[in-house]
Simulated scan of single mutants.
Amino acid sequence: MRAALYWAPERSDPLHALGSRWLGRDAETGAVVPQPAIPGLDLAALTEEPRRYGLHATLKPPFRLAAPWPELHAAAAALAARTRPFLLPPLRVAPLHGFLALRETVPCAELRRLADACVVELDAFRAPPSADEIERRRRHDLSPPQQALLRRWGYPYVLEEWRFHVTLTCRLAPADLPAVRTAAEALLGAAAGRPRRVRELCLFAQAAPDAPFLIADRLPLRG
């Protein structure tokens, strides 16, 4: 079993339903959702990897548990309870390292602080990655700071290397990017572009290595 701390749209947010339709799966219920048709492209194949994780932005990357689930849940709920709700700037569809994602139009300092707190304050619940996992990460041409983060926190893109993004596709061929981006903007652009308050910290769970991630709980921010 693995856990992760993510931001995800609230159930009532139109972005939740539209993003689930784009990926083809609802991370709240696990239900398969029919995807829009893009002429000449296989959207199911282009979203295969992000579909496993559900519509989200990573705060604390997936990790195996070093303590019982109820202890992690209680600690994550306590972290959420001392965090004040805050405004998330509008999002936009943008390319990122060859794939498409929803990105902030302006940086959100409060979300960065929450991501940092999830990584640091919940680290006692993270079992160390295996040697194979470390080696697999190292193959991605990491910078020296990213190598150091990988050794300390089990993942290279946290803290100062963290970037908010909601992954929408696998890596795309350059020729496919314009059509996929146009379709994503048509479906998600208006909903993504609205300011929204962040009032929840989402605890996701993966029951087995090949299982999809599901929202295990939405922990309210009460600070």
Rank of each mutant, 00 (worst) to 15 (best):
Pro36Leu: 01
Leu43Cys: 03
Ala57Gly: 11
Ser20Tyr: 00
Pro107Met: 01
Pro89Asn: 11
Val33Lys: 03
Leu111Gln: 14
Leu41Asn: 04
Val32Met: 04
Arg103Ile: 12
Ala44Leu: 12
Thr47His: 07
Gly40Lys: 06
Leu122Ala: 02
Arg113His: 12
Asp116Pro: 09
Ala101Asp: 02
Leu102Phe: 08
Glu49Trp: 11
Phe86Gly: 07
Glu121Cys: 04
Ala31Cys: 09
Gly98Glu: 08
Ala76Met: 07
Leu88Thr: 05
Phe86Pro: 10
Leu43Trp: 03
Leu114Ser: 01
Phe99Ser: 04
Leu102Gln: 04
Ala78Arg: 12
Gly30Thr: 05
Ala94Tyr: 12
Gly54Ser: 08
Ala109Asp: 13
Ala44Met: 04
Arg84Val: 15
Pro39Ser: 07
Phe63Thr: 02
Gln35Asp: 02
Pro89Gly: 09
Arg51Asn: 02
Trp69Glu: 13
Val119Trp: 05
Arg21Ala: 10
Pro62Gln: 12
Arg84Met: 11
Ala115Tyr: 05
Ala37Ser: 14
Leu79Cys: 06
Asp116Ala: 14
Ala77Val: 04
Arg21Ser: 01
Ala117Thr: 09
Gln35Gly: 01
Cys108Gly: 07
Arg21Phe: 00
Gly30Trp: 00
Gly30Cys: 02
Glu28His: 14
Pro107Trp: 01
Pro107Tyr: 05
Ala67Arg: 13
Leu65His: 12
Cys118Asn: 10
His97Phe: 13
Lys60Leu: 12
Pro50Lys: 07
Leu65Ser: 12
Arg82Val: 10
Pro39Arg: 08
Glu48Trp: 10
Leu87Trp: 13
Pro85Asn: 09
Pro50Glu: 08
Gly54Ala: 11
Val106Arg: 14
Leu100Trp: 13
Ala57Ile: 10
Arg103Ser: 14
Val33Thr: 03
Arg103His: 15
Phe86Leu: 08
Pro95Ile: 07
Arg51His: 05
Ala94Gln: 15
His97Asn: 15
Leu43Gly: 05
Trp69Phe: 14
His73Pro: 00
Leu91Arg: 09
Leu59Glu: 06
Pro34Trp: 01
Ala115Val: 05
Gly54Glu: 06
Pro50Ile: 07
Leu114Cys: 01
Ile38Phe: 01
His97Glu: 14
Ala67Cys: 05
Leu43Val: 09
His56Lys: 05
Val93Ile: 13
Asp42Lys: 10
Ala109Thr: 13
Val120Lys: 08
Pro36Tyr: 08
Trp69His: 06
Leu55Ala: 06
Arg84Cys: 11
Ala31Arg: 11
Ala57Asp: 08
Ala75Cys: 08
Ala57Cys: 12
Ala81Gln: 12
Thr47Trp: 11
Arg51Gly: 03
Leu114Lys: 07
Arg82Glu: 14
His97Ser: 15
Ala77Gly: 14
Leu100Glu: 04
Tyr53Glu: 09
Leu23Ile: 10
Pro85Leu: 10
Arg25Pro: 01
Ala81Pro: 11
Leu96His: 13
Leu23Cys: 12
His73Gly: 00
Pro62Ile: 05
Phe63Gly: 06
His73Asn: 03
Pro89Arg: 13
Leu59Lys: 03
Lys60Gly: 07
Thr29Phe: 00
Val32Phe: 04
Val120Trp: 03
Arg113Val: 11
Ala77Ser: 14
Leu100Thr: 10
Leu102Lys: 08
Asp42Ser: 15
Phe99Val: 03
Leu87Pro: 09
Gly54Arg: 08
